[in-house]
Design a protein around this nucleic acid. Structure first.
Lengths: 144, 144
DNA sequence: TTAAGTGCAAAGGCTTTGCAGCATA
DNA sequence: TATGCTGCAAAGCCTTTGCACTTAA
């Protein structure tokens, strides 16, 4: 049985077959607009395709990462979140009270230059992770 | 049977009993000088005290973290590393070729101020993780 | 003495893998 | 049609937990 493919990702699959499952997953990651973890991705995928398995979710995430389609970020204490690659400069604020994750633009070129001149270290990937309280929670916390 | 305690950490245990196991583990983390993971910590601990269990290692790491004695960092793709808390400003460079982890001093006050004024976000913890090639590996890579 | 920690073993999550069947190109 | 993906179920890690015993203070 052939399924209608709702969105075409063949251009980015670099020779790897485009499948119903991969299209679904990539679409969901894109829709999620960052910060979706494997478990939630499986939950959403399963709600659209009951037969999908966690194995496929993990295999697809690994493939997407290898192909450079997504970024894997470790936020908070225990989770990996995945998102479609966008600006290399965009980083994360994680609220430790409500769990919200906020993107922020963060030019790191100064830091990259500094470690190159001081340590001879060539940066290929940069992650900044700031934890604390978002504006709402900072306010709530003040009232407590 | 009472063991001789080789180093006294009672001042930092904040009311929690000082045990042979906790002393051993804290000492090993200190000796490791940063960047030791739970598995390696257990391995080293077991070589000095055959009866120690992984449960104690994990329980102790959690306690030390709660007491603010150690920092937990997520480096590279999959590992958590623990280190004795030192300067809040010190961050990590991870070489993706040889796996070496280099500490570097990194003042983040500008960034902290910026997210506060732009997002109302109060930072309580900051992590910067730069991945790339250390000076030796950058050189080796050039020759390849 | 007693509250707290420890070891053991089992259980819990999350992630990976082997295999037979199925779909994509 | 042939390579490669998928689902299923089992296995593998790492980490946590329940329980009875032991220990620090």
């Amino acid at each position: 049985m052939r399924m209608r493919i709702s969105r075409n990702y063949s251009n980015v699959m670099q020779g790897h077959p485009q499948t119903r499952q991969r299209n679904l997953l990539l679409g969901l990651i894109r829709e999620a607009n960052g910060h979706i973890d494997a478990k939630e991705l499986f939950r959403r995928a399963a709600s659209k395709d009951k037969s999908i398995s966690t194995a496929t979710v993990y295999r697809s995430l690994n493939l997407f990462r290898e192909l450079g389609l997504i970024d894997e970020k470790r936020l908070g204490q225990a989770h990996c979140y995945y998102e479609i690659k966008r600006s290399p400069q965009h980083q994360h604020l994680a609220c430790s009270r409500c769990g919200k994750v906020i993107d922020f633009d963060c030019p790191l070129s100064e830091m990259v230059d500094k470690v190159k001149s001081e340590y001879g270290f060539i940066v290929t990937k940069a992650e900044v992770y700031l934890e604390g309280y978002c504006s709402e929670c900072a306010e709530e916390k003040g009232k407590e």
